[in-house]
Computed example of a mutant assay.
Amino acid sequence: MNEDTRPQPTAAEDEAVIALATTMLEAARSGDADTLLSLIDQGAPVNLRDGGGNSSLMLAAYHGHATLVRELAARGGDVDLTNDRGQSPLAGVAFKGTADVARELLEAGADPDLGTPSAAETAQYFEREEITALIAQARRTEG
């Protein structure tokens, strides 16, 4: 079977996939760990991305859900997956100023120098002293 002869999804199947993606991305935004982690544990993609390239982990991080970020990373969520604008989850967190989420991302191995602007640059620009200190500590630990 090749691409031309493979059965194509029905409209109902397409709608079901869209509904699943919508549920997962909304759960990430709202911090609904029970829903999101259950779906991932059943085989849904942990690095699902929205139309702007924001992963579930990025959305959870940006909206301040530290425990969910930790659980997504533990399930293979890519802590360095940038969105379509080249922004990393850690840079979004540095913009928002949520140090507990920054700590989780750094502990999971997030690169503070990745993206445009990087998390390190963002933390300095917005004078996020606690996040800047966490980045410095992570650099000392890995070096």
Results as ranks from 00 to 15, higher is better:
E15I: 01
Q124T: 02
G51D: 13
V79W: 12
A108I: 08
M24F: 08
G43V: 06
A136M: 09
V17E: 13
A66C: 09
V46T: 04
D84S: 07
V79L: 13
G115T: 07
D113T: 00
H65D: 09
T132Y: 06
A120F: 10
G31E: 11
A19D: 15
E71G: 01
T122F: 14
A12V: 07
T98N: 15
Q124A: 13
M24L: 15
V93T: 06
A28Q: 08
L36P: 03
D100W: 02
Q87K: 08
I40S: 04
L57A: 10
M58S: 03
P45D: 15
A12H: 00
T82R: 07
M24H: 01
S56K: 00
R140Q: 14
D111T: 00
T132C: 14
E127H: 01
V93L: 15
G51S: 07
L39H: 10
N83Y: 06
T98F: 14
L134A: 06
L20K: 02
R140H: 10
T23Y: 05
H65I: 08
N2W: 07
T141W: 09
D84Y: 04
G92Q: 11
E104C: 05
P7G: 13
L20H: 00
N2H: 03
L105E: 06
P7V: 13
L72S: 05
A123D: 11
G43L: 11
L20I: 03
N47E: 10
P9T: 02
R6E: 11
M58L: 09
I131R: 01
G53Q: 02
A11E: 14
V79H: 07
A44E: 12
R140I: 09
G92D: 14
A102D: 07
V79T: 08
A123M: 12
L59Q: 05
G51C: 04
P112R: 04
E142P: 00
G31L: 15
P45I: 10
A102T: 01
T5V: 13
G52P: 05
A123H: 07
T98Q: 11
G143H: 06
L39R: 08
L106A: 05
V79I: 10
S56G: 15
A133I: 12
L105W: 01
R6S: 03
R103T: 08
P45G: 09
L39T: 00
A44I: 04
G77P: 09
P89F: 10
A138Q: 11
Q124S: 05
Y62G: 03
Q87G: 11
H63I: 06
V17R: 07
A16M: 13
G109S: 03
A123V: 09
S88Y: 03
L105R: 00
R6P: 00
E3H: 00
L36I: 08
G77Q: 06
D41T: 00
A119K: 01
T132G: 12
L48G: 02
T22F: 14
A138V: 09
A94L: 14
A21S: 10
R103G: 03
V46A: 14
L68R: 01
